[in-house]
Amino acid sequence: MTTTTGSAAAEFSRRQQSPLQRLQHVLHGRPWLSPLFLLVVAFVAFFIATPTFLTASSMGILLQQTAVVAALAVGQTLIILTAGIDLSVGAVMVLSMMVMASLAADGGMPGLIALLIGVALATGAGALNGFLVTRINLPPFIVTLGTLSIFTAIALLYSGGSSIQADRMPRLLNFLGEGFGIGAFRLTWGIVVVALIYIVMGFVISQTAWGRYVYAVGDDRESARLSGVPSKRILLGVYTVAGLIYGLAAWLLIGRAGAATPNAVPDANLQSITAVVIGGTSLFGGRGTLIGTLIGALIVQTFAFGLSQLGVDQQWRYLAIGVLVIVAVAIDQWIRKVKA
């Protein structure tokens, strides 16, 4: 009887809501829907403006350009879900890339060993960020702002500011730039690796206790701690796993660029945060999905790629992305006000 009464009350409450309120509830439960709608609109608009946009070859190029940012955005999503932020993401990736490339090209080290050392270094860099946040109790923004400068300087000092071309490195480090074609549609192994990262991490954060703890810590760290969640250990794990993913992104970048350069992807930090925010993950923590992040990364690259095909100046592309970020945060604020 109580259950029936409760269901009737919930149904009555739902009917009393305006269409806008119902939309607010839907987006609160599925934050990836609004960026998906935006992505579809962008695809249609660019196809109308330039019919070559939706060709198989163009879509292959778009996916290749999205791969590195999409990988970085996975680690950034984990951190933002805990109400943190990582400004050192690009610096960690570049440092890892230069170390693995230099060890293989100049140190004569086997490609697999160089790769493992580079990924381990990135993992350690992420763990260092996590240690400073959880043990020294410093704000994530300040910690990663500082390590951004530190890791960037180390990468420049270590490499001497010089690039290492693909022909000086073993095939393994360049492997993710190779690929296969399906007609005119070309995929690289890097895209396959990014897809695997999303599948694995999507399962982890949605189907495991660790993933539920990540959301709990981001939603309310103190309440999570009082409920028995080891908040500091979870946070340290999040930053460490993020570092591991940045190391894999470094491997992706070598294959994508065909070289290792200390000046690669200077706006990686901005792009990864933009992808996460546009994808519906709340900057206040506790809400978001990896599917939303993937859609967000595609939106960022779709606008850049489509506007480039239209011959629009780069300044206008930055303006478009900036507007998207502000709109995405405004929508997030509106969704957070949803009433049960």
Rank of each mutant, 00 (worst) to 15 (best):
Leu33Ser: 08
Val143His: 09
Ala9Lys: 12
Ala268His: 07
Val40His: 00
Met1Arg: 03
Gly243Tyr: 10
Gly211Tyr: 06
Leu172Cys: 03
Gly118His: 07
Thr2Cys: 00
Gly237Met: 09
Ile273His: 07
Trp210Met: 10
Ala155Arg: 02
Val217Asp: 09
Lys232Asn: 15
Gln333His: 10
Asn269Gly: 14
Ser88His: 05
Val338Lys: 03
Tyr239Lys: 09
Glu11Trp: 05
Leu252Tyr: 06
Val119Trp: 04
Ala260Tyr: 03
Leu253Glu: 14
Leu20Gly: 09
Ser162Lys: 14
Ser282Cys: 03
Ile245Ala: 04
Leu248Asp: 09
Gln24Thr: 12
Phe46Glu: 07
Ile142Asp: 02
Ala330Glu: 09
Gly118Arg: 08
Ser13Lys: 06
Gly296Leu: 08
Ile182Met: 06
Ala330Met: 11
Leu283Ser: 09
Tyr246Ser: 12
Met97Phe: 04
Ala73Tyr: 04
Asn129Asp: 08
Ile191Gln: 15
Ser149Phe: 14
Ile291Ser: 12
Ala91Cys: 04
Val229Ala: 13
Arg287Asn: 06
Met98Gln: 03
Gly296Phe: 11
Ala49Gln: 08
Gly179Arg: 01
Gly247Asn: 11
Ser58Glu: 03
Gly124Lys: 05
Val214Asp: 01
Phe284Tyr: 13
Pro139Ile: 02
Ile205Phe: 00
Ile299Gly: 05
Phe180Leu: 10
Ser58Gly: 01
Met59Tyr: 02
Leu157Ala: 14
Ala153Ile: 06
Leu307Ala: 05
Tyr198Ser: 12
Ser96Phe: 07
Val327Phe: 12
Phe141Tyr: 11
Ile182His: 02
Ile80Arg: 07
Phe175Thr: 04
Ala259His: 07
Ile199Asp: 01
Leu20Tyr: 13
Leu244Gln: 02
Leu310Val: 05
Gly296Tyr: 10
Gly108Ala: 06
Tyr246Ala: 15
Lys232Phe: 04
Gln24Leu: 07
Arg256Lys: 13
Thr66Asn: 00
Ala70Gln: 02
Ser308Gly: 13
Thr147Trp: 12
Arg233Leu: 10
Thr82Arg: 01
Thr66Tyr: 02
His28Thr: 04
Gln21Val: 14
Val300Thr: 08
Val200Thr: 15
Ile321Pro: 15
Pro262His: 09
His28Asn: 12
Phe303Tyr: 14
Phe53Val: 05
Ala114Ser: 15
Phe180Asp: 02
Gly181Ser: 15
Val44Met: 13
Val204Leu: 13
Met1Lys: 02
Ala122Glu: 05
Ile278Lys: 04
Ile278Gly: 05
Ile79Pro: 15
Ser162Val: 15
Thr66Ala: 00
Val276Gln: 04
Gly211Cys: 05
Thr50Ala: 10
Gly243Pro: 00
Leu78Asp: 08
Ser163Gly: 12
Leu81Met: 11
Val241Gln: 06
Leu172Gln: 02
Pro170Asn: 10
Thr4Asp: 01
Thr50Tyr: 01
Ala71Pro: 03
Val143Leu: 12
Leu172Thr: 11
Gln309Tyr: 03
Gly146Met: 10
Asp86Met: 11
Ile85Val: 15
Ala328Val: 07
Ala155Thr: 02
Val312Gln: 10
Gly60Arg: 00
Val194Trp: 08
Glu178Cys: 03
